[in-house]
Design a protein around this nucleic acid. Structure first.
Lengths: 148, 148
DNA sequence: CTCCTGAGTTGGTATTCGCAACTTAGCATT
DNA sequence: AATGCTAAGTTGCGAATACCAACTCAGGAG
């Protein structure tokens, strides 16, 4: 399986790359928590949704917590864990690329902003001094941990 | 189809989210260009590889250029376009997340570095002044272009 | 003129997906 | 107490994808 790969991209894709998973995470990021809301927003089949949520919970990307509204029976809420919230970087990168290379006719429909100031944001590579590094200066290099 | 979605994440995933696509792009980023090399590196079935390369070419992520080595017949090389190279941000984000949350026992196998200085790199959100912004300060907001 | 290699295509089987229908559980209403 | 309503699933079945093996189709080399 891809989850055993020495390549971290392969492991991430092995866990997250199935159909619907990124869209489930997107909705979770927008605050959706209930099974039925995911279904409404996405139109995903219930068996597939059940399967995806289970594996996300199993791997610690989401958590399933029972909750009870007053005067209603107890239900389950699916929420992002810290690991899941960190996927915002991946989702932001996908969004940025899609807006640029598969544009929506009327322009971007969702923007990334700094919460308080409203300043626009993009996703990019940053060095250890907090300085952005252009794509051409980025290199991927194998370490000794890479098996033969 | 997801490619018509108003959500840029959905469009990106609709094009790139099929099985093998990210791994093909990873190999392309490492300089692989030939059909048979992709097959060797990934172990992907030839019909699937053919299909993925075709759609990547169709959407301008890769290009198929004939080339000829001296004393050999002409062949095809698949290379990233500028749009394809920009996916390094997405791949870097997936890698970073996988290294953190699905770690390889002996540590990361591939590092991101500044090409000349060797300084380590990470992927993150950056504001319009080039300053990194922590995750908690990032907000996603709908624009007027988002349809009802 | 046959062999070799790269770049695929074709055919059949095994998974996975998607839809529809059904199940389970508990509060609320009659 | 029986029925209804809704959330959260599960089950069964046809359709679409993926995987594997074998085959095709160049064009240059021996």
């Amino acid at each position: 399986m891809l989850l055993d790969s020495p390549c971290a991209i392969a492991r991430s894709v092995g866990l997250l790359g199935e159909r619907w998973t990124f869209l489930i995470l997107r909705e979770a990021g927008f605050g959706v928590t209930q099974f039925a809301r995911f279904r409404e927003q996405l139109g995903v089949a219930p068996d597939v949704l059940s399967d995806r949520l289970s594996t996300l919970v199993e791997y610690g990307v989401m958590e399933r917590v029972p909750y009870q509204e007053p005067g209603a029976r107890s239900r389950y809420a699916y929420g992002l864990t810290d690991a899941g919230r960190e996927l915002a970087v991946v989702l932001g990168a996908l969004q940025q690329w899609g807006d640029e290379h598969l544009p929506w006719p009327e322009g971007p429909t969702v923007l990334r902003r700094v919460r308080k100031t409203g300043r626009p944001l993009h996703v990019g590579f940053i060095d250890d001094r907090g300085k952005e590094v252009p794509l051409d200066d980025v290199a991927f290099e194998r370490t000794a941990a890479y098996p033969a």
